[in-house]
Design a binder for these strands. Structure first.
Length: 113
DNA sequence: TGATTGACGTTAT
DNA sequence: AATAACGCCAATC
């Protein structure tokens, strides 16, 4: 079955759904996994349109620096932090996380681990 | 149809 | 260290 994603959004959803619990992935990492290393921003756009009842672990997506985008300025950044804690991940009040510990490498391969 | 924006990232100053 | 500007491409105005 050729389950090739018809749209960028489908690919992103599939990649995010693959992130195991207790692991973190960056926007660029997801973009790279789906075959579009040049579109970290579009990944964020897709996640932004996700419903609150989505099954996707969107809260596991952080930026490459290892913290939640906008550090709380965003509408649901704080909510994302709460979810990460519920996953068993240590998160600072500002959204800082330890990528060195929770950083998950997709099927793409470890760039540095 | 063109211009602006954006849950980012990287490089330069 | 922090801030500014550029890049990248889809969605929105």
């Amino acid at each position: 079955m050729s389950g090739e994603p018809a749209s960028f959004r489908e690919a992103v959803c599939a990649a995010v759904a693959r992130v195991p619990r207790g692991a973190l992935a960056s926007y660029k990492q997801i973009a790279w996994m789906v075959g579009y290393p040049r579109r970290p921003r579009q990944v964020g756009m897709v996640l932004r349109g996700l419903p609150e009842d989505t099954d996707l672990p969107w809260h596991r997506i952080v930026n490459s620096l290892g913290y939640v985008p906008s550090r709380g300025r965003w509408w649901g950044a704080m909510r994302q932090i709460e979810r990460l804690r519920a996953e068993g991940i240590e998160v600072d009040d500002l959204g800082n996380v330890d990528l060195a510990r929770y950083g998950w490498n997709g099927d793409d391969g470890p760039p540095g681990f």
